[in-house]
Simulated scan of single mutants.
Amino acid sequence: MKCRIAVRKQRGAAIVVNHRGRVYRHRAPRWHRRPARDIVFRRRPHRDEGVSIRVEILIDILGRSGVRRLEAERRRLDLRGALTAQWVSTDRTGERVLRVRAGGHPLAALVDRTGDGYVEDLYVRRDR
């Protein structure tokens, strides 16, 4: 595989070493785990994995207070761009996770482990 493609496809804690010996490390964001029993998925997850969800739909899913909370985190981290989200299922348990991005940067992941509609865990990006 070409070095350029390997660096682009790099995920997680992977390291790419090219033919000249240069090492490229993927800097994954670090996360704070916060309890979030006050956030409720007002709309059930659907099967459209990987489809980008805009702010208007995100308000339908989380409500205005949930989106305001994410906007406050976006401002705190000084991230530019609109909020977008995607439904993702985990390989291990098959539970659905709502991943939120701000202008292409990871911002938060909201997890409903029990399937009751309440978000048990909220993972928010930490400052670098």
Rank of each mutant, 00 (worst) to 15 (best):
M1G: 15
C3S: 15
R4F: 09
A6R: 13
G12M: 09
A13S: 13
V16A: 12
V17M: 13
N18S: 14
N18G: 14
N18H: 08
H19L: 12
R20H: 06
R20N: 08
G21P: 07
Y24D: 04
Y24N: 11
R25M: 11
H26D: 04
H26E: 06
R27E: 07
A28V: 12
P29E: 01
P29I: 04
W31I: 09
R33I: 04
R33L: 07
A36I: 03
R37Y: 00
D38I: 04
D38S: 14
D38N: 13
I39L: 15
I39Q: 04
V40Y: 09
F41V: 01
R42H: 13
R43H: 03
R44K: 13
R44H: 05
P45A: 05
P45I: 01
H46E: 10
H46P: 05
E49L: 15
G50N: 12
G50R: 14
V51C: 10
I53A: 09
I53P: 08
R54F: 01
V55K: 15
E56G: 15
I57G: 00
L58I: 03
L58R: 09
L58G: 11
I59C: 11
I59V: 15
I59S: 05
L62H: 01
L62Y: 01
R64I: 03
G66D: 02
R68L: 10
R69M: 10
L70D: 01
L70F: 03
L70S: 07
E71R: 15
E71P: 05
E71D: 13
A72M: 13
E73H: 14
E73Q: 14
R74F: 04
R74Q: 15
R75L: 14
R76Q: 07
L77A: 11
D78Q: 14
L79V: 06
G81F: 05
G81W: 02
A82E: 11
A82F: 03
L83S: 04
L83I: 05
T84E: 10
A85E: 03
A85N: 05
Q86E: 13
Q86C: 12
S89M: 05
S89H: 08
D91A: 14
D91Q: 11
R92D: 06
R92F: 07
T93M: 09
T93R: 13
G94N: 05
E95V: 12
E95L: 14
E95G: 11
R96Q: 00
L98G: 02
R99M: 06
R99Q: 09
V100H: 00
A102W: 02
A102C: 10
G103T: 07
G103S: 12
G104K: 09
H105K: 15
P106L: 13
L107H: 01
L107K: 04
A109P: 00
L110C: 06
L110P: 04
L110R: 03
V111M: 10
D112L: 08
R113H: 05
T114E: 07
G115F: 06
D116K: 08
G117M: 05
Y118I: 15
Y118F: 12
Y118G: 06
V119S: 08
V119M: 08
V119G: 10
E120A: 11
D121F: 10
L122H: 00
Y123G: 04
V124W: 00
R125C: 01
R126A: 12
D127S: 13
R128H: 02
R128S: 07
R128W: 00
